[in-house]
Simulated assay, not measured.
Amino acid sequence: MSDDKSKRGPADAQRINVHETYEVRYWTEALGVSEARLREVVAEVGVMADDVRRALRKH
């Protein structure tokens, strides 16, 4: 089953999928970070949104 690209938010609100443009757009706006920073933090702590939020608060 394929993703519905017309959706603006993430398919799974607990995970950040940096391989989908619409999800990257959503998360960069929701977290107030650049795409590069989002990808960097996801690479460091994984795809769980709570872990990414925690890491962003630390810095």
Rank of each mutant, 00 (worst) to 15 (best):
Q14W: 09
E29K: 11
A43I: 02
E20T: 11
W27I: 02
R15E: 14
I16Q: 02
R25E: 13
V18N: 05
E23P: 09
G46E: 06
V47G: 14
A13E: 15
R39E: 07
T28F: 03
V18W: 00
D12H: 12
V33K: 03
L38M: 08
E20Q: 12
N17Y: 09
V41I: 14
Y22V: 08
V45E: 00
A36W: 05
E23H: 11
V18G: 01
G32H: 03
D12K: 10
R39M: 03
R25C: 11
V18Y: 01
N17V: 11
Y26R: 05
Y26V: 08
R15I: 15
A43G: 10
R15W: 11
W27K: 05
V24K: 06
V33Q: 02
V33E: 05
Q14C: 13
G32I: 07
V41S: 02
G32W: 00
A43W: 01
E35W: 04
L31R: 01
R39G: 00
E23V: 10
E40G: 04
Q14H: 14
S34K: 08
I16L: 02
E40V: 04
R39F: 04
V45C: 02
R25V: 12
V42I: 05
E20K: 12
E20V: 15
E40R: 07
E35V: 00
N17E: 11
R37K: 12
V45T: 04
A13K: 15
W27Q: 07
V41N: 03
D12P: 10
A30Y: 03
V33Y: 02
V42N: 04
A36C: 08
V18L: 01
S34F: 05
Y26F: 13
G46R: 01
Y22I: 08
G32D: 06
A30T: 09
V45I: 08
V24C: 07
W27N: 00
R39N: 04
R15P: 10
V42G: 00
Y22K: 13
V18S: 03
H19Y: 14
E40H: 01
G46C: 06
G46F: 01
T28L: 03
V24T: 04
A13S: 15
E29D: 09
I16D: 03
V41E: 04
T28K: 08
V24M: 04
Y26Q: 08
Y26S: 08
L31A: 05
V41A: 06
D12T: 10
R15T: 14
V42A: 07
A36N: 10
